[in-house]
Amino acid sequence: MPSTQTPPIAGAAVDPPSLRPSIDDAAIERVEPSALRARLEALKADGYGMLLDLGGVDYLARKPRFDVVYHLLKMSAQRAGVSEVGTPARVRILCGVDGDEPHLPTAMDLWKSADWAEREIFDLFGIVFDGHDNLRRIQMPYDWEGHPLRKDYPVRGPARERAPRPAFANKNNVQAGTPPSGRTLEALQDQVKRVREGGQSS
């Protein structure tokens, strides 16, 4: 698949999360895929009741290639006013995975909301979540090929046969190309020609 995408500047081999970890108020951890499941379970038991978000990043030239980013929020299921909730703790977990079809354990049984988020990462990045019970494409059509948010996926999509042009767009079809003013395309072209040749416009 030829890529029409502008190559990322400064090389994707740099690892932005490791460069400036201090500008965020969340605690940031990097976890190996093998240890991910245990870490998520421990955090859930620790009161991180909300899996705020789950997203993917493709660092094309880096090893490991992908990052899956979990944003967790410490929140208990008690009815509480704004002052009781206060400023809940946030944790961001980055998990690097590699390969053309990377695998990660699902978090769906810990937080139900992981369902669609994992389907989206599978759809757009091609990362498979083992144990997910309904891992289908979610944004793209079910028979789509490729994973659009990967960096080697062209921004205009795969090369496809162009749809036939509608009749009114065909320049040879003068009848269909008659402009609303009633003047035909030929008449307009004649007029342009006369002007170009130095004659007077009628």
Binding site: P8, A10, A12, P16, P17, L52, G55, V57
Partner: peptide, 19 residues
Amino acid sequence: LGYYVVSTGGNRPYRIRTR
């Protein structure tokens, strides 16, 4: 509404993930 924004130092965003 959240944005997880990654920059690699260029003049284009490297990745914008929406929550």
